[in-house]
Each structure stands twice: as C-alpha cells, then as structure tokens.
Design a binder for these strands. Structure first.
Lengths: 340, 340
DNA sequence: AAGCCTTTCGAAAACGTTTTCGTGTTGAAA
DNA sequence: TTTCAACACGAAAACGTTTTCGAAAGGCTT
C-alpha cells in the first residue's frame, strides 16, 4: 500500500530542498533544466499530486461550494444540484451537499459546519421551518464573514444577497389566465400554507388574475395543505362538495393526487375538469393523462446560481454590495390534463 | 465585515500564547481556571470556531465522504444519497457529491480530484462507460493508497472492496416467477445492453426462471435497449408483432412507456398484459395504472454503504482485507399493473 | 585581482491547529 | 537556606504547500 507521496519525500529522495521540488514542478525558471527534469520525472513516476487540503489552507480557498437544500429526494432539487454541478465542474469547483430535512436546526448546524473553512460560499434554498420562524441569523452570520451566499426558489427578502427565482406570482397569473381563456370560471387552488414563500406568491398570482377578470374569489376553493402526507382528505372534500371546472396546483403531487381522486369519481379529465400544476417533473410527463405544467427549469436555476456565486468568488473586488435577483423564465407546457 | 477569528488573534488580544488559548478551549487541566475562563469568554464573544481545513491537515482526516454517481436526476440515486447523508450526518461526516454523467473520463477526473486529500473515502456506483471499458485503474489506485471504497448497485467483481447491492438475479427470478404463477407464459423482457451489470444480472434471473419452468426462451421477446431516449420504437415493435402476456422491465421508464403504448393500442392493463418493473420510484406510484414493482430500497442501500465506509474509517486497525458484500433485500410491491 | 551580475538553490515564513516538551515561578518540606 | 514537586504557561514541531528572500558559486568585465 503506497501512501500518497509529498514534496518532502521527493526532496529527501532526490537530496534537494522542498522549495526546489515545488519550483521544479511549477516550471519555475529559477531552477536549472537539469534538476527540473529530474524532479519532474521522479514526481511523475510516483504519481505526485499536490494535497488539496494543504493548498486550501495556504490559499484560503477551498474551491468548493456548499449546497444546503431541504431534501434531495425531490426532482426539482435534484435538477438544481445537477445544474450547479455542471458549472462548478467547469470552473474546477466541487460541491458539498447538506440536507436540512426542512428543519431549522439542521440547517443551522450544517451551515455552521461548512462555514468553518470547508466551503468558499453557499447556494441554498430555505427550509420550511426557517421560513416560518423567519430567523436568518445563521445566514446573516455567514454573509457578515464575507462569504457569498446565493438563495434560490425558497428565498426571503429579509436577507441581502444574490437570489435566483422564477416569477411565481406571474407564472400563477398566466397559468390561471390560460384556464380562464378556455372558458373556465370555477377554478380551485391547491396550495401550501402561507409561510412557504413560493406558495404565498403563487396564491397571490391566482388571486390577482381572478380580480382582474372580475371573478369573485371563493375562499372555499382555496385549499391550503400543510401536510403532504394527508392531502387526500382535503382534496376529496373539495371534489365532493364543490362543483369546479379547473384546478391550479402548486406542485405535481397535489395535481396527480387530485386527478386520481377525480377519475375515481368518474370525473373526466380534461372534459369535466382541467388541471394545471407547477413544477415540470417526472410525474407530469408520465402520468395518465399527462399533466399541463408550468416548467420550472431547475437545471437553469442551478447553473445561474452557480454562475453568480463563482463570479463573486473569483471577482474579489471586495464588497460589491450590489446584489442581484435573477428571474428564470417559466413556460406553460400544455399536455393532456387541460382542454385544447 | 468581521472575518473569522483565529487562535492567534485571540492569543494576541489576551496577551497569552497560542498554546494557552488552544488548551483553554479544550479544557486542559494545565491551565489555571482564571485564564481558562477568560479565554473561553473571549472566544465565545467572538464566536470562535476551529478551522476545519487546519484540523484536516493536522489530523489527516477530512471527515468527508466522496460520492460519485452517474447522475443525480434519477430518483434511485437521490434516495441513496439521502441514505448516505443520514448516517454521515449522525457521525459528523459531510458528503461531497460528484456526477460522472455516465462518462469514464469524468469519473476518473472527479475521483482524482477528491482523492488528493479532499475525502477520507468513497461511495460510488460505476458509470456505464466504465462498466463497458472495464478499466478500473482509478479505483485501484485509490484503494492502493489505503482509502476505503464502497461500491453500490453498479459494481464490478474485478474490484476488491466493500459492496452493497440487491440480489438482482434473484429479484428478477422472483418477479418473473410471480408472473408465471398467474398463469402467464409469454413474458417479454425490457432490459439494457449487457455491459450494464444490473441489466445483465436481471436478464440472467429472467432466463433462469424460464428454464426452471421449462418455458422455452424466445429471443425475440428480449429487448435490449441501449438508448433510453428512443425506447419507444423498439417497444412498439414488440407490442405490434408479438402476442405477449406480460412484461418485466428493468426500470420504471421502460415500464411506463410500455404501458402507455399498450393502452394507446387498446391493450388493457392488467387484463391483457401484466407489467412488473424494477426500481420502486415516483412514477410507479403515481402512474395510471400504478405499477407493480420490485422495491430497491435506496435509503437502506445508502445507509448501509455509509455504515460500511465509516466503519472502516474509524476502525483503523489497518487493512482488514476482509471485504464484505451486503445484500439489501427487495420485495415485490403489488399494484394495479398485474392481475390479482 | 577586484568587483559585479547570473545562475541556482535553500531557509524560512505563512496558512490554523494540536500536542509534546521545556521552563520559570511558587510554595512547602528538609 | 536548599531542594523538590506542583503549577502555569510558552516555544516549537508537525501536517503539505507556495513564495519571498538571501546566499553561494561561477563567470564576466575592468
């Protein structure tokens, strides 16, 4: 078992100093061609590679990005990671992933752990609990230390940093408008509780478009679901007690659940009921019927977030303080769950 | 912008030596209670946290695990990461994720990058290209250096290390047996090309069970799909030209595609055609009809892999050389796509 | 032969820790 | 008064790099 070889060992073996070895390997003109070649040959033979940890300590740069997301078993977040990884890789960065599991405490612990030298910056999406508590001291701490942070999707206006989001409100507006344009009036909304930022914004978009078209808002058609596990009951209730034309769901899961329940009651999709969902993921593409969705390009979001972060890292002209919020465009992907 | 405070700064501020500060913070009895409390108070005030990089360099341990997988936008891999992260977190480890994108070169590059000090060990699943080329020098290199490696799912017998897999062959055998027990005889197989280890094993299981039941193997019913993108054509061909009772698919995608195509031809599921798929993911649970699957518990696989790796890392009684292969049990989750 | 530039290399600091070992001071015992 | 242990602390090495600076040796010009 050959352990990794270090500069010191090479130096000893060749009876030169450590500096000479280091300079030789970096093709410094200070070193004669003779010894330079000798050292390089030896290094190649023993497959020398500089130790990243030592380099990180010296350069005060780790070339790694910390990602903290609520969960990874969620297609959207997986695509975002994928996007981040792409551009990180292109720029020689690694990504270290931590999951908050929607828990504030885990988010804090993970962040403090990574902030102590492990990463150069953060890309993150807030946990539900964090959004609810509105406690961002861990983020503020990190930002104060001069580490750049980029928030995506689940953000907060209370934090000053770069952000990348979709225009949730506009997307909800347009999607609902699409339904209205098909002559549908009684449109239900399956959303989350209000403290989830994107849920709130999507709800606002829905409300605005109804208002703009002079459609009266029926609070009974707005279902705020706290716990994804038991969404069946509330949706069932909606389908049984209210006669509705269409549903706008803030995620795929609500949509596919509604469709299944509706079909089991003999409601025909899209003839009797049209359904549009946020998040263009696996389910929408493969369910029956396929679901019309608002695409939320995770890859693009991830790439953008990584670009913004790396930009700040490389361009160390210090505090730019001029934070930007990038908006990733969405588009409606029309499939079988809506009337044509 | 307060930068992170170091031992040196605290020492200077309090006019003591670095050693005194370090010892005070670690509650060494060498230090008088007086100075100890003084130092601790100061450290707390300035929120001192030891620098991970410096610790890593000193201890020659990074407390991070390198994960290299073909892609993350794939529910199974996401669940495995989730499992790994769970136990890693419990033991104070971080995970750094790299994607090979099914490319041999990217796998090698990522591995070399992480092997130079960034991680203490690896958990990985081989890329298709690597399995095809059967070139494992990068893995061998790392193992020779004394870094533990745990392979999961896509493994190779040519590499000596810990492994965690499901018994693909047995699972395929049992799933096919289930179909046969329902009186079905003409069972088609949708699989991958043979160099993908799990594809090969599942194919073998299928072949064995047919042989054991004296059912003649019809090579025309075995569809080896290279490119997931264009699986439609080959499946279409199968459905049109052959009369079949059932399908065993080595992944969800093949299964749901087959079901959709079949239904569009008026073939009823499960009355006319039963379908069983490997990988119990999102699609199977939400498609219509829901799909009977062989569950492949990614969380459990990830947890097991992480446990094995961390075990080797902590228990440094040197080369145990006694590598184990853990087998995660599967079970058939019966849903609507098969006759009851 | 004296001075000076080039060439070639090594010593040492620095990054932030932990830990071993040494050392000075104090108090008590002889 | 001397000796010795206990106590409290600091110096320095080590982890593996890179880089600055100094220095030795050789050759060249006067």
């Amino acid at each position: 078992m050959r352990r990794k070889v270090t500069l010191k060992q090479i130096a000893k073996e060749l009876d030169v100093s450590i500096s000479t070895v280091s300079k030789s390997l970096r093709d410094s003109p200070e070193i004669s061609e003779d010894t330079r070649l000798k050292v390089q040959a030896f290094a190649k033979l023993y497959n020398y590679k500089p130790n990243n940890i030592a380099l990180s300590l010296k350069n005060k740069k780790t070339k790694t990005i910390g990602i903290i997301i609520p969960e990874i078993v969620h297609h959207f977040f997986a695509t975002v990671i994928s996007g981040i990884e792409q551009v990180a890789n292109e720029s020689g960065y690694n990504v270290i992933v931590c999951l908050s599991d929607e828990s504030f405490d885990k988010e804090v612990i993970n962040m403090e752990m990574l902030a102590n030298g492990s990463t150069d910056g953060f890309i993150m999406s807030l946990s539900k609990e964090t959004q609810q508590k509105k406690d961002f001291h861990h983020l503020q701490e990190v930002i104060n230390q001069g580490m750049p942070v980029v928030l995506f999707d689940r953000i907060s206006n209370d934090i000053l940093c770069d952000k990348v989001i979709i225009d949730d409100q506009l997307a909800a507006y347009e999607a609902t408008h699409f339904l209205i344009s098909k002559g549908l009036k009684k449109i239900a909304l399956l959303t989350t509780v209000d403290y989830v930022s994107v849920g709130k914004l999507r709800t606002d978009g829905y409300l605005n478009v109804l208002h703009d078209h002079g459609i009266e808002v029926d609070e009974n058609l707005i279902i705020r679901i706290e716990d994804t596990e038991h969404c069946d009951e509330k949706i069932n209730e909606l389908l049984e007690n209210k006669s509705i034309d269409a549903i706008l769901a803030v995620n795929e899961l609500f949509a596919v659940t509604a469709i299944k329940l509706a079909m089991s009651k003999g409601i025909k999709i899209p003839e009797d009921l049209s359904v549009v969902a946020f998040t263009d993921g696996i389910i929408s593409k493969y369910s029956t019927p396929t679901i019309t969705t608002i695409s939320q390009n995770g890859i693009k979001m991830g790439r953008k977030a990584a670009e913004m972060l790396i930009n700040r890292l490389e361009l160390d002209d210090e505090e730019d303080e001029h934070y930007k919020t990038e908006i990733i465009e969405t588009n409606l992907i029309i499939r079988e769950s809506t009337k044509s």
